[in-house]
Simulated assay, not measured.
Amino acid sequence: MAVTLPAPPVPTVPRREESVRGGSDFTPLARRVRASGLLERRPGYYARAIGLNVVATVAVWGAVAWAGDGWWTVLLGVPLAVIAVRTAFLGHDAGHRQIARTARGNRLLGLLLGNLLLGMGHGWWSDKHNRHHANPNHVGKDPDVGEGILAWTEEQAGRQRGVLRWVARHQARLFFPLLTLEGVNLKVGSLMFLRGRSRRDQVVEGGLLLAHAVGYLSLAFALLPVGQALALIALQHAVFGVHLGAVFAPNHKGMAMPEPGERWDHLRRQVLTSRNVRGGVVTDWAFGGLNYQIEHHLFPSVPRCNLRRVRPLVRAHCAEVGVPYAETGVVGSYRLALGHMREVGEPLR
């Protein structure tokens, strides 16, 4: 699909007077969004979303019990994964304090949705994701572009050795296959994070993660023979990882990456590093509202159901102050993200 506006080039380092002037560019936009009422929480929307999510989860497990012993039952791992991604979206929203009015209420929701229902640590995710929001696409500050299995810069790719160097060379074509392991990786990361936390966090978060593991495995192995239970678990985690990774991949990959020492104001730091994915109701549902990535980064506490209405305000303001606003279709977003990964690995081929 055609790109509405081209991805912006990496801006030059702003001069001091430009940074000071640019620092005020966000204020008029913030006033307009606040005056529109779109910052207000939507408790009714989230009550329905959480209720439907719980009902859907119970219904699919009920279908597993009803279908009984049979390899076709394993395919119910797919809707279980899709529903689990919806749970992850709700946990994400709680982490940004979009749902409840108090920090305590949002933390409680995050623990129940993340740790208990998903087996993914709310504390670990919040720490990692908040650092990403503070400095998106900034190597050394954003954990989402840190050193790992995949390389996000040519410098990172050049430092890879052994198998990881081969992976970096072919990472564009390996990206989606590797995502099948992301569901397990998220759970392992949640457990590793707890090692350095307080005793209270270890007891609360660790206890909920343990309750999830016991409940999930007991349910799977009580309803299905061992082989089918393992297959269902593997399928659910694989589809979950691909689905969740496919949602987050187009948002920043291939966008501007600030150089070390560069200091951008809030508006440019969030807009120039983010990309929206254009689409309708289906896209909004599949991406959990995160296809409005620019608006989400500028106003992370805005309820996801309001992001579509914030978009025209942000587009108009970016045009007014001369800040490029990147938006493309679903296919185009993956083409750009995978193209960036291919370019990073190119020098190794």
Rank of each mutant, 00 (worst) to 15 (best):
V58C: 11
R268G: 04
A337C: 12
P258I: 08
R15C: 09
V10P: 05
V282N: 03
C318D: 08
R41N: 08
G146M: 04
Q293R: 08
V85H: 01
A103N: 08
G95P: 04
V20L: 13
Q160W: 08
A231K: 10
A88Q: 05
L111N: 01
A213V: 11
A65P: 07
A246K: 02
R315Q: 14
I149T: 15
F299C: 02
G77A: 05
P260D: 12
R15G: 15
A172W: 03
R31L: 10
T283Y: 05
R16I: 15
L209G: 00
W264I: 06
T57A: 08
G91C: 00
G329L: 05
A213W: 13
L219H: 03
A134Q: 14
L75K: 11
H296S: 00
F176K: 03
T273V: 14
M255K: 01
V3W: 08
D127I: 00
L113I: 09
L223G: 10
L76I: 14
S218V: 10
A56Q: 09
G162E: 10
G91V: 00
P347R: 11
H237E: 08
R42S: 13
G70S: 13
Y46L: 02
L210F: 11
V188G: 09
V330F: 02
L108W: 15
R97N: 15
V33I: 14
M192H: 12
F240L: 13
L116Y: 04
L179K: 04
H340S: 12
H122G: 00
Q270A: 11
V74G: 08
L181W: 11
I233R: 04
L307W: 01
N137M: 11
V163N: 04
T328W: 00
R31F: 05
D69I: 09
N251F: 01
S24T: 14
T273S: 14
N135L: 07
N137A: 15
L209H: 01
G339Y: 06
E155C: 06
S36C: 10
R32A: 14
A134E: 14
N306A: 12
A49Q: 15
M1S: 14
L194E: 09
C305L: 10
R86M: 00
L224W: 02
G140P: 11
P9E: 13
S274K: 05
L209C: 04
S190R: 01
G51S: 13
P14A: 07
P43K: 10
S218M: 13
T27Q: 12
V163F: 15
R263Y: 07
V64K: 01
L164D: 10
G121H: 01
L272Q: 12
Y46E: 01
W166G: 07
I149E: 13
K141R: 15
Q98V: 06
E18Q: 15
L113Q: 00
L208Q: 04
V242W: 03
V331I: 11
T328I: 02
M257R: 08
F176G: 00
V13E: 13
D127G: 00
F287K: 02
L174H: 09
R335H: 10
P143S: 12
L267F: 12
C318F: 07
V139D: 08
E262C: 06
L307F: 05
V282A: 01
R101L: 13
M255C: 08
R309W: 11
L186Y: 03
N53S: 14
